[in-house]
Design a protein around this nucleic acid. Structure first.
Length: 113
DNA sequence: GGATTGACGGGAG
DNA sequence: ACTCCCGCCAATC
């Protein structure tokens, strides 16, 4: 019987491509949670896959990775790290406001597809 | 090939 | 708001 390839290089990229495409859909000035991105990509419950993917993006990626935050409306990066500050800088430039606690009001800035 | 590790999430207490 | 716990699963030890 022909064996069903489980994790060949080709089909490994399918979920990743769906996630990429979804992140690319988040409009300026809006944020989406990892779980939301996963669900929109047709991969409910796979929030961690979104996080892993974004973590592996090359520096020059044009994907709007900064528009993805966790379900609490906060960045999952260390705010003091270069990428953490970059994320906030980019979001603020798009008009996203941060509370003193560092969280974002998802009711106002959350992406509603 | 088992155990650990996460840019996560939701529920319970 | 916070801790603990469990489900999730590809990558890495």
């Amino acid at each position: 019987m022909p064996r069903r390839p489980q994790t060949t290089p080709r089909n490994r990229d399918v979920p990743q491509e769906r996630i990429r495409a979804t992140v690319d859909c988040i409009p300026e000035g809006r944020v989406a949670s990892y779980g939301q991105v996963a669900a929109e990509a047709g991969l409910p419950g796979r929030a961690r896959l979104v996080g892993r993917l974004l973590g592996e993006l090359a520096d020059g990626s044009r994907l709007p990775w900064h528009r993805v935050v966790n379900a609490a409306g906060k960045s999952s990066l260390d705010p003091a790290s270069p990428s953490g500050r970059e994320q906030r800088r980019r979001l603020e430039r798009e008009g996203v406001e941060f509370r003193a606690s560092g969280s974002i009001d998802l009711a106002r800035f959350g992406w509603r597809p």
